[in-house]
Protein backbone atom coordinates (compact mmCIF):
# COMPACT_ATOMS: atom_id res chain seq x y z
CA UNK A 1 0.00 0.00 0.00
CA UNK A 2 1.48 3.35 -1.00
CA UNK A 3 2.21 5.77 1.78
CA UNK A 4 -0.08 8.78 2.10
CA UNK A 5 2.53 10.74 4.03
CA UNK A 6 6.12 9.68 4.02
CA UNK A 7 8.99 11.23 5.90
CA UNK A 8 12.06 9.91 4.16
CA UNK A 9 15.24 9.95 6.21
CA UNK A 10 14.53 13.44 7.59
CA UNK A 11 16.79 15.36 9.94
CA UNK A 12 16.11 18.72 11.54
CA UNK A 13 17.87 21.38 13.57
CA UNK A 14 16.16 24.60 14.70
CA UNK A 15 19.11 26.83 13.82
CA UNK A 16 22.41 26.44 12.06
CA UNK A 17 24.94 25.10 14.53
CA UNK A 18 22.22 23.82 16.86
CA UNK A 19 22.07 20.08 17.54
CA UNK A 20 19.87 17.85 15.43
CA UNK A 21 16.56 17.22 17.19
CA UNK A 22 15.42 14.75 14.59
CA UNK A 23 18.03 12.60 12.90
CA UNK A 24 17.55 10.26 9.97
CA UNK A 25 13.93 9.45 10.73
CA UNK A 26 11.74 7.58 8.30
CA UNK A 27 8.02 7.30 8.96
CA UNK A 28 5.29 6.09 6.63
CA UNK A 29 1.63 6.81 7.17
CA UNK A 30 -0.55 4.72 4.90
CA UNK A 31 -4.16 5.57 4.14
CA UNK A 32 -6.36 4.88 7.15
CA UNK A 33 -3.45 4.35 9.50
CA UNK A 34 -3.54 5.17 13.19
CA UNK A 35 0.04 5.58 14.27
CA UNK A 36 1.31 6.41 17.72
CA UNK A 37 4.60 8.21 18.16
CA UNK A 38 6.06 7.40 21.56
CA UNK A 39 9.09 8.70 23.31
CA UNK A 40 10.32 10.53 26.38
CA UNK A 41 10.40 14.31 26.69
CA UNK A 42 12.77 15.86 24.18
CA UNK A 43 12.84 12.81 21.96
CA UNK A 44 11.75 14.85 18.93
CA UNK A 45 8.09 13.78 18.71
CA UNK A 46 6.68 17.30 18.38
CA UNK A 47 9.34 18.27 15.86
CA UNK A 48 8.62 15.17 13.80
CA UNK A 49 4.92 16.14 13.72
CA UNK A 50 5.91 19.63 12.53
CA UNK A 51 7.97 18.12 9.74
CA UNK A 52 5.08 15.82 8.81
CA UNK A 53 2.62 18.73 8.73
CA UNK A 54 5.03 20.86 6.70
CA UNK A 55 5.06 23.79 9.14
CA UNK A 56 8.80 23.17 9.36
CA UNK A 57 11.04 22.04 6.56
CA UNK A 58 13.53 19.26 7.23
CA UNK A 59 17.19 20.27 7.25
CA UNK A 60 17.84 17.18 5.17
CA UNK A 61 15.69 14.41 3.76
CA UNK A 62 12.23 14.97 2.38
CA UNK A 63 8.56 14.63 3.23
CA UNK A 64 6.22 13.39 0.52
CA UNK A 65 2.47 13.87 0.50
CA UNK A 66 1.25 11.24 -1.92
CA UNK A 67 3.64 11.63 -4.79
CA UNK A 68 4.39 15.32 -4.21
CA UNK A 69 7.11 16.84 -2.09
CA UNK A 70 5.38 18.60 0.82
CA UNK A 71 7.58 21.69 0.58
CA UNK A 72 6.45 22.19 -3.03
CA UNK A 73 2.93 22.79 -1.75
CA UNK A 74 1.76 26.16 -0.49
CA UNK A 75 0.71 26.32 3.14
CA UNK A 76 -2.92 26.52 2.03
CA UNK A 77 -2.64 23.46 -0.20
CA UNK A 78 -0.91 21.51 2.55
CA UNK A 79 -3.48 22.60 5.15
CA UNK A 80 -6.30 21.26 2.99
CA UNK A 81 -4.80 17.80 3.31
CA UNK A 82 -3.07 17.79 6.67
CA UNK A 83 -4.67 19.10 9.85
CA UNK A 84 -2.90 19.48 13.16
CA UNK A 85 -4.12 19.51 16.75
CA UNK A 86 -1.47 21.35 18.76
CA UNK A 87 -0.62 20.37 22.29
CA UNK A 88 -1.98 23.55 23.84
CA UNK A 89 -4.31 26.22 22.63
CA UNK A 90 -4.02 29.56 24.39
CA UNK A 91 -6.22 32.27 22.92
CA UNK A 92 -5.09 35.88 22.90
CA UNK A 93 -8.72 37.02 22.60
CA UNK A 94 -12.08 35.53 23.40
CA UNK A 95 -13.73 33.49 20.69
CA UNK A 96 -16.81 31.32 20.68
CA UNK A 97 -16.34 27.60 19.97
CA UNK A 98 -18.03 27.84 16.58
CA UNK A 99 -15.66 30.65 15.59
CA UNK A 100 -12.67 28.48 16.43
CA UNK A 101 -14.08 25.60 14.41
CA UNK A 102 -14.87 27.83 11.43
CA UNK A 103 -11.24 28.96 11.40
CA UNK A 104 -10.51 25.43 10.16
CA UNK A 105 -12.09 26.48 6.87
CA UNK A 106 -9.34 29.04 6.26
CA UNK A 107 -7.35 27.02 3.69
CA UNK A 108 -10.50 26.48 1.64
CA UNK A 109 -11.48 30.15 1.46
CA UNK A 110 -9.98 32.76 -0.84
CA UNK A 111 -8.63 35.96 0.69
CA UNK A 112 -11.79 38.04 0.89
CA UNK A 113 -14.29 35.16 0.98
CA UNK A 114 -16.65 34.65 3.90
CA UNK A 115 -17.75 31.21 5.11
CA UNK A 116 -20.84 30.12 3.16
CA UNK A 117 -23.54 27.54 3.98
CA UNK A 118 -21.26 24.63 2.99
CA UNK A 119 -18.52 25.79 5.32
CA UNK A 120 -21.00 26.21 8.14
CA UNK A 121 -22.40 22.73 7.54
CA UNK A 122 -18.90 21.24 7.62
CA UNK A 123 -18.16 23.08 10.88
CA UNK A 124 -21.42 21.84 12.39
CA UNK A 125 -20.61 18.30 11.30
CA UNK A 126 -17.19 18.63 12.96
CA UNK A 127 -18.87 19.80 16.16
CA UNK A 128 -21.27 16.87 15.96
CA UNK A 129 -18.47 14.38 15.30
CA UNK A 130 -16.66 15.55 18.43
CA UNK A 131 -19.84 15.74 20.50
CA UNK A 132 -19.58 19.48 20.99
CA UNK A 133 -22.62 20.78 19.09
CA UNK A 134 -24.12 22.07 22.32
CA UNK A 135 -20.99 24.12 22.99
CA UNK A 136 -21.03 25.98 19.67
CA UNK A 137 -22.03 29.40 21.03
CA UNK A 138 -20.07 29.12 24.30
CA UNK A 139 -16.92 31.21 24.81
CA UNK A 140 -13.94 28.94 24.32
CA UNK A 141 -12.19 30.09 27.49
CA UNK A 142 -15.15 29.01 29.62
CA UNK A 143 -14.94 25.40 28.46
CA UNK A 144 -13.34 22.60 30.47
CA UNK A 145 -10.04 21.09 29.36
CA UNK A 146 -11.69 18.13 27.64
CA UNK A 147 -14.27 20.33 25.93
CA UNK A 148 -11.58 22.66 24.68
CA UNK A 149 -9.58 19.77 23.28
CA UNK A 150 -12.62 18.40 21.50
CA UNK A 151 -13.39 21.81 20.00
CA UNK A 152 -9.79 22.13 18.79
CA UNK A 153 -10.09 18.66 17.24
CA UNK A 154 -13.33 19.78 15.60
CA UNK A 155 -11.49 22.80 14.16
CA UNK A 156 -8.90 20.44 12.69
CA UNK A 157 -11.69 18.22 11.29
CA UNK A 158 -13.26 21.28 9.69
CA UNK A 159 -10.17 21.51 7.53
CA UNK A 160 -11.62 18.46 5.67
CA UNK A 161 -8.13 17.00 5.58
CA UNK A 162 -7.49 13.32 5.10
CA UNK A 163 -4.62 13.44 7.60
CA UNK A 164 -4.80 14.45 11.23
CA UNK A 165 -1.68 14.91 13.33
CA UNK A 166 -2.20 15.25 17.07
CA UNK A 167 0.44 16.40 19.51
CA UNK A 168 -0.16 14.83 22.92
CA UNK A 169 -3.93 15.24 22.72
CA UNK A 170 -4.55 13.92 26.23
CA UNK A 171 -1.57 15.42 28.02
CA UNK A 172 -3.40 17.84 30.29
CA UNK A 173 -6.61 15.89 30.75
CA UNK A 174 -7.91 13.79 33.61
CA UNK A 175 -8.65 10.10 33.23
CA UNK A 176 -12.26 10.57 32.18
CA UNK A 177 -11.39 13.05 29.44
CA UNK A 178 -8.48 10.87 28.34
CA UNK A 179 -10.86 8.02 27.69
CA UNK A 180 -13.31 10.32 25.98
CA UNK A 181 -10.67 11.71 23.63
CA UNK A 182 -9.16 8.33 22.85
CA UNK A 183 -12.51 6.85 21.94
CA UNK A 184 -13.26 9.94 19.85
CA UNK A 185 -10.01 9.49 17.94
CA UNK A 186 -10.67 5.82 17.38
CA UNK A 187 -14.15 6.61 16.09
CA UNK A 188 -12.85 9.33 13.74
CA UNK A 189 -10.31 6.89 12.36
CA UNK A 190 -12.70 3.99 11.96
CA UNK A 191 -15.95 5.73 11.00
CA UNK A 192 -14.66 8.81 9.18
CA UNK A 193 -11.57 7.25 7.65
CA UNK A 194 -9.20 9.92 8.98
CA UNK A 195 -5.56 8.89 8.85
CA UNK A 196 -3.87 9.82 12.11
CA UNK A 197 -0.54 10.17 13.79
CA UNK A 198 -0.63 10.80 17.52
CA UNK A 199 2.35 11.74 19.61
CA UNK A 200 1.87 10.76 23.20
CA UNK A 201 3.50 9.92 26.50
CA UNK A 202 0.63 7.70 27.39
CA UNK A 203 1.70 4.14 26.60
CA UNK A 204 -1.70 2.72 27.47
CA UNK A 205 -3.52 5.19 25.23
CA UNK A 206 -1.18 4.24 22.42
CA UNK A 207 -1.58 0.58 23.16
CA UNK A 208 -5.37 0.82 23.26
CA UNK A 209 -6.00 2.66 19.98
CA UNK A 210 -2.88 2.76 17.79
CA UNK A 211 -2.34 -0.05 15.34
CA UNK A 212 1.23 0.99 14.67
CA UNK A 213 3.86 2.61 16.85
CA UNK A 214 6.99 4.61 16.21
CA UNK A 215 9.31 4.72 19.21
CA UNK A 216 11.62 7.71 19.34
CA UNK A 217 14.53 8.52 21.54
CA UNK A 218 17.04 11.37 21.17
CA UNK A 219 15.77 12.19 17.69
CA UNK A 220 16.18 8.65 16.40
CA UNK A 221 13.65 5.96 15.66
CA UNK A 222 14.26 3.16 18.09
CA UNK A 223 11.67 0.83 16.66
CA UNK A 224 8.62 1.00 14.43
CA UNK A 225 5.91 -1.43 13.45
CA UNK A 226 2.62 -2.98 14.56
CA UNK A 227 1.81 -2.22 18.17
CA UNK A 228 1.92 -5.81 19.35
CA UNK A 229 5.40 -6.27 17.95
CA UNK A 230 6.88 -2.98 19.07
CA UNK A 231 5.46 -2.62 22.57
CA UNK A 232 7.81 -4.93 24.42
CA UNK A 233 9.41 -4.62 27.85
CA UNK A 234 12.79 -4.33 26.12
CA UNK A 235 11.65 -1.34 24.07
CA UNK A 236 10.00 0.35 27.04
CA UNK A 237 13.24 -0.07 28.92
CA UNK A 238 15.27 1.36 26.05
CA UNK A 239 12.82 4.21 25.67
CA UNK A 240 12.26 5.36 29.24
CA UNK A 241 14.88 3.53 31.34
CA UNK A 242 11.99 1.91 33.12
CA UNK A 243 11.45 -1.75 33.79
CA UNK A 244 7.89 -2.59 32.87
CA UNK A 245 5.46 -5.42 32.53
CA UNK A 246 3.54 -5.60 29.30
CA UNK A 247 0.36 -7.63 29.48
CA UNK A 248 -2.83 -8.09 27.55
CA UNK A 249 -5.76 -6.86 29.58
CA UNK A 250 -8.32 -9.58 29.92
CA UNK A 251 -11.45 -7.46 29.54
CA UNK A 252 -10.48 -4.92 26.84
CA UNK A 253 -8.02 -7.08 24.98
CA UNK A 254 -5.66 -4.09 24.84
CA UNK A 255 -2.05 -4.27 25.75
CA UNK A 256 -1.27 -2.59 29.03
CA UNK A 257 2.03 -1.42 30.34
CA UNK A 258 2.70 -1.48 34.04
CA UNK A 259 5.87 0.35 35.04
CA UNK A 260 7.80 -1.51 37.74
CA UNK A 261 10.94 0.47 38.55
CA UNK A 262 13.24 3.05 37.08
CA UNK A 263 16.71 1.87 36.26
CA UNK A 264 19.77 3.99 35.85
CA UNK A 265 21.73 3.60 32.66
Amino acid sequence: MPALLWADNVSFRYAAGAPLVVEGVTVRLSDGALVGILGPNGSGKTTLLRLLSGTRRPSSGRVLLGDRALDQLSRREAARQIAVVPQETELAFEYRAIEIVLMGRHPHLSMFAVEGPDDIRIAEDALAATGTSHLAERPFHELSGGEKQRVVIAAALAQSAQLLLLDEPTASLDLGYQLEISSLLLRLNQDHGVTMAISTHDLNLAASICRELVLMRDGHVLAAGPTAEVLTPEHVKALYDVEADVQVHSETGHMTVVPVRRISR
Binding site: R50, S53, T55, S74, R75, R76, A78, A79, R80, I82, A83, V84, P86, E88, T89, E90, L91, A92, F93, Y95, I100, M103, G104, H106, P107, V152, A155, A156, Q159
Partner: peptide, 13 residues
Protein backbone atom coordinates in the same frame (compact mmCIF):
# COMPACT_ATOMS: atom_id res chain seq x y z
CA UNK B 1 -4.78 35.02 17.93
CA UNK B 2 -5.32 31.30 18.39
CA UNK B 3 -1.61 30.54 18.05
CA UNK B 4 1.14 30.77 15.47
CA UNK B 5 1.67 27.00 15.30
CA UNK B 6 -1.97 26.23 14.69
CA UNK B 7 -2.25 29.15 12.27
CA UNK B 8 0.57 27.65 10.23
CA UNK B 9 -1.18 24.28 10.27
CA UNK B 10 -4.36 25.94 9.03
CA UNK B 11 -2.65 27.42 6.00
CA UNK B 12 -1.15 30.73 7.14
CA UNK B 13 2.30 31.57 5.84
Amino acid sequence: SVGAESAAAKGVD
